[in-house]
Structure formats: structure tokens, C-alpha cells
């Protein structure tokens, strides 16, 4: 008899007799350890998404039975590993499909150009120009081509990196790597061999569309573990791609006029996407009342307030997760996680 869970909260029980499949059924129950995907997001850039995500992950890493996976979805500017300092290898390159014209068959009928909603094709007398960056890889052009002259080909737009490819013992005195990198990894490696399973996507500079890189990265979500996702800033398409299918969103904000205005946008987005959410206030000082007022009016829990301290800012500037130097914060992050877990459990029930 095999028991396994599907992507969410259903348990499948699969019974076999002498390799003859007898019956399979699933039963929806409350699994004790609720599997979840938690995103750390903010409308405004630079509020401390990465700080919260990294410190949360490092606080939880050792006392979670289920294991933890970290995905840096801010593929335009992936920064989380500056704080983890892991050695990353390329897992795969991310390609997107673009049309490739077979000129032996093409008769320049312009149908592809007329149908393309994104103006990614232009047919001139003896050429079909393809604008990679405008193409959404929908495949319509190859469908409409009466001569079957369009086949799709891949073009590189980024890559997925991870620390999970080879488990080498960590070198502490690496000389051949750049100074910056060595320094970071000296300081920021957590005091355990228990590396977090880390994945990041990186879009190539000059590329326009980051969503395909994010969706490829999200295939690395492991549903038997807690997944923490660092979400890109804003409320546009990459953000929606990254937030899709999450169980909870931590919205990081700062108590400024800008921060509050952008928090409101993030809340609207989370509500529209029906993702339960809570707030962490970073760089908090006396003037956080406005944010408190807004949250209590909207009935959004504030999980944690991280003070506006020069010490934290300086540690950040050197790429050091502050819980490694201020261990009293570990418990606070763990409590935050318990709160979130409870909230999701209530939501599920």
C-alpha cells in the first residue's frame, strides 16, 4: 500500500495486490504538517523583502521537520544569495519559443503578421522579421500559417541556478573567486551544514519578459516541503506569475508615505488573487501608526516589526543576515511562522 499526497491537501491511498492495481482513492484530511508555499512580497522596492525572506528561512531551517526550499523569484535582480552565499551551479537555461520561418515554404502572405496580437512579426517584401522581445510565445502564428512555414525555436532568456547539484564540502578560503563573493560566503553561511535548498532564476540583461523565467523556476517548488518565495516588487505581470498558487503572502512594508501607498496596492492584489496575507513592518519607528491604523481597519495581522536600526542596515550592506549577529530575532521569526501556519490551518478548515 502506498500513501502519497497530491499538490495540495489531499492524501492518496493506493493499494496494490500482486502488482494488480486494486483500488485507489483519496481522502481529504487535515495533514498535521500543512504544506505551504509562502511568498514574501511588497509593492515598493527596497522595503526589505529579501531581508525578511532570508532571515525567516535561516530561522526556520533547523527546526522544521519537513525541510525548506527557498526560491528567489525576483529574476530581474536576484539578490537573496548575496546573503546566503551558496555556491550555485546552473540547473538549466530558460528558453522561450519564438517563430522560425522556413523560407522554402513561406509565400509572404502576411497572415502571421495580421494575426499576431503583439506585433512581433513584420512581413516585408522578401523577409519576415521576428521581434523576439515582443513575442509572447503563444504559437498562434504557426497555427495560422497556411503553408506550415513557421516552426518554433527556442531562444535563451535566462537561467535557473541552484546549490543542489553537487554537494561539495564548502571551501572557506577561496582565492580564485572574486573578493566580494569570498567575503560574503565567509560571513553569511549559517552555522550549520544544513544548507537550505536554494533555487534562483536570473533573467538575462536586455531581455524584457521575466514571467517565463519565473514560471520555469516555480517548477522547482517541492510540495513536500515549506517553500519560501522572494517575490519581485510591484504589481505587474511578473508579480502575478510569482504569486500564482501561493498559500500565504507576507507583505513587507516600511512606515513611509510611499510604503503605505504601495502596501495598499499589494493588499488589493492579494485580495483579488484571493491569497491570505499578513504584514511585516520593516525600518519601523514612531511613525508607524498610519500603517497600524490601516492594517487594523482592514483586519490584516501585523506579524512583526523590525526596527529602523543603523546596525541592521550596516549588516545588510555587507550581505550579512542580521539574525546571525542578533540571534534573539530567530525566535521572533519562528513565532511569525507559527502564526502564519495557524492562520492557514484555520483557512483550510
Amino acid at each position: 500500500m502506498k500513501v502519497y499526497s497530491d499538490e495540495k491537501r489531499k492524501i492518496f491511498i493506493h493499494v496494490e495486490f500482486n502488482s494488480l492495481r486494486a483500488f485507489q482513492f483519496y481522502y481529504e484530511i487535515n495533514i498535521e504538517v500543512i504544506i505551504m508555499n509562502v511568498g514574501v512580497a511588497s509593492g515598493k522596492g527596497g522595503t526589505g523583502k529579501t531581508t525578511v525572506a532570508v532571515n525567516l528561512a535561516l530561522s526556520l531551517n533547523l527546526d522544521l521537520d519537513l525541510g525548506l526550499r527557498f526560491l528567489d523569484c525576483d529574476v530581474e535582480e536576484p539578490n537573496s544569495n548575496l546573503f546566503f552565499g551558496y555556491e550555485l551551479d546552473r540547473l538549466k537555461t530558460v528558453e522561450k519559443k519564438i517563430p522560425n520561418i522556413n523560407y522554402d515554404k513561406c509565400n509572404f502572405c502576411k497572415k502571421c503578421m495580421e494575426y499576431c496580437e503583439f506585433n512581433a512579426l513584420a512581413v516585408v517584401p522578401d523577409e519576415v522579421m521576428v521581434f523576439d522581445d515582443l513575442c509572447h510565445s503563444c504559437g498562434l502564428c504557426s497555427m495560422v500559417c497556411p503553408e506550415e512555414a513557421i516552426k518554433e525555436k527556442g531562444t535563451r532568456i535566462g537561467e535557473i541556478k541552484t546549490n543542489q547539484i553537487q554537494k561539495k564540502p564548502k571551501k572557506t578560503n577561496e582565492i580564485d573567486k572574486s573578493n566580494e563573493k569570498t567575503k560574503n560566503s565567509d560571513k553569511s553561511i549559517p552555522a550549520s551544514d544544513n544548507e537550505i535548498e536554494f533555487y534562483e532564476g536570473e533573467m538575462d540583461v536586455g531581455r524584457v519578459m521575466s514571467s517565463p523565467v519565473i514560471s520555469e523556476l516555480k517548477k522547482q517548488i517541492d510540495n513536500s516541503k515549506l517553500n519560501i518565495l522572494d517575490i519581485p516588487p510591484g504589481s505587474g505581470c511578473p508579480v502575478i506569475e510569482a504569486m500564482d498558487n501561493l498559500d500565504y503572502l507576507i507583505l513587507v512594508t516600511e512606515p513611509t508615505k510611499f510604503g503605505l501607498s504601495d502596501l495598499k496596492n499589494s493588499v488589493k492584489l492579494a485580495e483579488a488573487m484571493k491569497i491570505p496575507h499578513g504584514v511585516i513592518i520593516n525600518k519601523s519607528q514612531e511613525d508607524a501608526q498610519e500603517t497600524h491604523k490601516y492594517c487594523s481597519k482592514k483586519d490584516i495581522p501585523i506579524h512583526l516589526e523590525i526596527p529602523n536600526q543603523r546596525e541592521i542596515a550596516e549588516l545588510y550592506s555587507d550581505g550579512v543576515p542580521f539574525i546571525t549577529q542578533m540571534p534573539q530575532w530567530k525566535k521572533k521569526f519562528r513565532d511569525t511562522y507559527s502564526e502564519i501556519k495557524e492562520k492557514i490551518e484555520i483557512e483550510v478548515n
Binding site: 530581474e76 535582480e77 524584457v208 519578459m209 521575466s210 516588487p233 505587474g236
Partner: peptide, 10 residues
């Protein structure tokens, strides 16, 4: 402008 290196920045 906006943060990042993607479409709105370009």
C-alpha cells in the same frame, strides 16, 4: 523610472 532591468525600465 521603476526598479529592475525589465520591460518598464527599458
Amino acid at each position: 523610472g521603476s526598479p529592475g532591468v525589465g520591460c518598464p525600465v527599458i
